[in-house]
Each structure stands twice: as C-alpha cells, then as structure tokens.
Nucleic acid binder design. Structure first.
Lengths: 198, 198
DNA sequence: GGGCCTATGATTACACCGTAAACATGGAGT
DNA sequence: ACTCCATGTTTACGGTGTAATCATAGGCCC
C-alpha cells in the first residue's frame, strides 16, 4: 500500500486530495459554505457517498482541510502582494490583496473564518492561519515601534477583515461584492484614510 | 378574524412572534446560525412542523425576520452607547457597544451579516440595517469634514465589524470570544490607536 | 342565531443530508 | 501464492426543508 493504483480501479488512490479539490470547487460556485457537503464532494470525486469517511472522521474535518488550503492560498496572495511594494505601500497592497481574495472566493473565505461551534480546530488549520497572519503582522512590525506592533497589526487585520466581510456580504454595494478589483480599490482608499482629526 | 384566540386553542394566535422569539432563543444557545431551523422553531413554539409555513414562505424568510430584530437591537445598543459620551468618545463607545453586541450574541450577529446567496433581502431587513448604520454614520459625520464623511464612516464601520468578526470567530483569543466586556475593552483600545506613523 | 368561508394549524410524503454498521474488493507484504 | 487490511460500497436511521392535502374554528353575512 502507499503507491497509486490506476485511475479506473476500485480504489481511487487520491481520494483525499480529490475531495478537498471538490470542496474548493463547490465553494467557488456560490459563496455559500453550507453548500459544501460530504455527499456532494463524494459525488464530484466520483465515489460513493460514504467513501469520504475513510479519510475524514466527519464533515467538519473535511471543512477544516479545505479551510487550511484556503489559508495557504491567502498567505501566498499576501506574500505576492507584499513583494510588489515597499514600506507602507506594501501594507496597503497586502490589504487590497486580502480583500480581493475574499471577494474572489467568498465561500472559501467564509469557511475559513466561520467558527465551528464546539469544534476544536485541527493543528494544521491553526498553523496555516497563523502563517497567513504572520505575513501581515511582520510587515506592520517593520513600520511601527515594537511596543505597539502587536496592536497595530491586529488593528490593520481587523480593518481589512471588516472591509472584506462587509464587501462579500453585500453591505457596501454590488460592485464591492462581485468585483475583486473594485473591492481592492475600495480597500486601498479606506486604508489610506487618516484617523479622524481630533 | 384579527383578534387573538385564547392561548390554549387550536389556533396559536401569535405564532409569527413566537417563532421569531424561538429563533432568537436558538441563536443565543450556541452561536451557530445553522442551528436555527424551521422545525426546531416550530417545536419551541409548541406547534406542528409545518405551521411556520403559514407565516413565512420559507426558511430564509424566518431567518430574515430574526435578523431584522437583530438589527433593531443593534441600533438600540448603538444609540444607547452613543448617548453616554460626547464627540469622538461617543464614537468609541459605539464601537465598543458594536463589538460587545456581537460577542454577546454571536449567532444572531452572524445571521444578520450572513448573505443568503441568491436571496433578495426583504425590505424590512434593509431598512433595519440601514437604520443601525445611520447611528454610527451620523456620529462620524459630526466629527469629520463633509466631503470625507462617507468614507470615514465606512472605515469606522469596517474596523469595528472586523474586530467583532475576528473576536466571535475566536481569532483574537478566548476572552475576546466569550466575554463581551473584554471584547469591548479591546475594541476601545484599537479604536484609540492612531494610524501608523509615516 | 345558524351556516358557510377562510385563515390557520396538522398530517403525510419526498428528497436530501450526516452518520453508523456491515459488506466487498483488491493491492501489499510475507 | 495467500492472506490481511486499507479503502470503497451498501444499507439503514434520524434529521432537515418543502409541497400537498386534510382538519379546525373563529368571523362574517343572512
């Protein structure tokens, strides 16, 4: 065991990866995380309804695996955006990328941040989300005094996360909900605003 | 018809209100909007499983009605908080109240902002959410130049919404997730932070 | 006051979902 | 070559949302 059986055989061979891929595909088709189900994922992977249970103890485990991939993609998107600019421009670029990511994949984004009520988050999921946050956090740390870095990073995260959440929930307008570029542009504008004058 | 039959009679008499109240109760017991179902609400209202369909065309309609109540409560909370302070202190108080509201009723909060994918939002829901936003928006308008008021208000909203979302999803820590006072205190601290120095 | 009308609630039925248990298959290691 | 067991299948059960049909009783009209 361990090597890959032929594609047409009784045993799928890469079911776990196929199920995660199917989950990602489902989430890309409607923005509703509740559309991602064990049976539907199994259907898309061309396998019986119960097969997923050989690879995931329950539905939440599949969801967590998909969310983990989501955080890895988010981290990659943030790193790519950060590399383009310099100083606080890089921070703004990260914010825009964060919002664009959410807008482009609202279902995945909602899944990533939807707290499974009683569920303990798997280790891999925590690591992936922490890695994504580190990209933003370290950029902020390079821009502010060390003693306020943590709070400034949290504040920046909250701001872009709020913009992203409101955008995909249609609270800012149809353009910000459906067009990642428009949402990113809006995010950049809001990020450049100074705090209210005192 | 139109008057209220006795409580023990065949006809409930206030089923619509009872179902909404049941929905609110369900949401207060776990933070998971998916726990709010038509059948469970009917059960709590002491009525058959199909009875809700006489008052709501489908599940989304009940959800929207509950969410509308949520926005009314949020508006009341923001107004109460605003009344206490003055100037930008009132704005900070509103932000703290916003986050405390989400933390105290995460299920309701998630329902309010969860975009039903293809669903058109009922008029009442739009009005209620707009009314809540107006409380914050008008406070911001009283603090900044008119030409930037809209964007400043949106920025403030996004910031507190982001803090609230991250808090209830457990991304900031257990205290911020479960203790409304701790979450509100954190929100106030973040709101008082200046933008990053340039 | 008596009788129908209709708003409201109850029943039944169906498809879908997550999950558990029992069964089948076939590649891997001996 | 033979067995083992990881993996996939089948069947079954309770839960959900929804549609269709039936039952009740309060209000209105005569």
């Amino acid at each position: 065991m361990g090597s890959k059986p032929g594609k047409g055989s009784y045993h799928h061979g890469e079911l776990r990866e196929s199920l995660i891929a199917a989950g990602l595909a489902i989430l890309e088709e409607g923005g509703d995380p509740s559309a991602l189900g064990l049976r539907e994922a199994a259907r898309r992977a061309g396998v019986s309804a119960m097969a997923p249970y050989r690879h995931f103890p329950d539905k939440d485990a599949l969801l967590a695996a998909v969310a983990t991939v989501g955080f890895e993609r988010l981290r990659a998107a943030l790193e790519a955006a950060d590399g383009g600019g310099e100083g606080r421009e890089a921070l703004y670029a990260q914010g825009a990328a964060y919002v664009a990511f959410a807008c482009a994949q609202p279902g995945l984004f909602r899944l990533m941040f939807g707290a499974r009520s009683g569920g303990v988050r798997p280790e891999a999921l925590c690591l992936a989300s922490a890695a994504a946050y580190a990209v933003l956090s370290e950029r902020v740390a390079a821009l502010v005094p060390a003693e306020s870095a943590a709070e400034e990073a949290l504040r920046s995260w909250a701001l872009v996360h709020g913009i992203a959440s409101l955008a995909i929930d249609g609270m800012i307008g149809e353009a910000a909900r459906t067009d990642p570029q428009a949402a990113a542009a809006l995010a950049e504008r809001l990020l450049r605003l100074e705090t209210l004058p005192r």
